[in-house]
């Protein structure tokens, strides 16, 4: 069970980073850490004792394969995560150009 708990701890590390960091880029990095902890957990859910990569071998019908569906899900989620990260980095670059800082405490036009 230890790998699963480690995934949860990694998730919490990312959450801690998002809450406490002041730098926009560090917040984006913490988001990525959180994202990949979820992906690791998803990939782990497909694990089977003694399983091999799910490429069907017609000569050996009794082989144990790991579950391929979580892998497909993780791949899709990685693509989505890539789009999110690219989007957030573009926004951060734009913010830097407008405000001249990465510090979140100085970026507060909107309140109320």
């Amino acid at each position: 069970m230890i790998p699963y708990y480690l995934c949860f701890i990694l998730f919490l590390v990312g959450l801690y980073g998002i809450i406490t960091r002041r730098n926009l880029v560090k917040i984006a990095i913490s988001l990525s850490v959180m994202e990949f902890s979820v992906f690791l957990l998803l990939a782990l859910t497909g694990y089977r004792e003694g399983g091999v990569a799910p490429i069907v071998d017609p000569t050996d019908p009794v082989k144990v394969y790991v579950d391929p569906l979580p892998q497909a899900m993780v791949l899709t989620a990685i693509v989505i995560g890539l789009a999110t990260t690219a989007m957030i980095m573009a926004v951060i670059i734009r913010i830097y150009r407008k405000y001249g800082t990465f510090d979140i405490r100085e970026i507060k036009n909107l309140r109320g």
């Binding site: 690219a86 980095m89 573009a90 670059i93 734009r94 830097y96 150009r97």
Partner: peptide, 9 residues
Amino acid sequence: ALIIFKEEM
């Protein structure tokens, strides 16, 4: 796009 952003800055 990210390089162009950086070059424009």
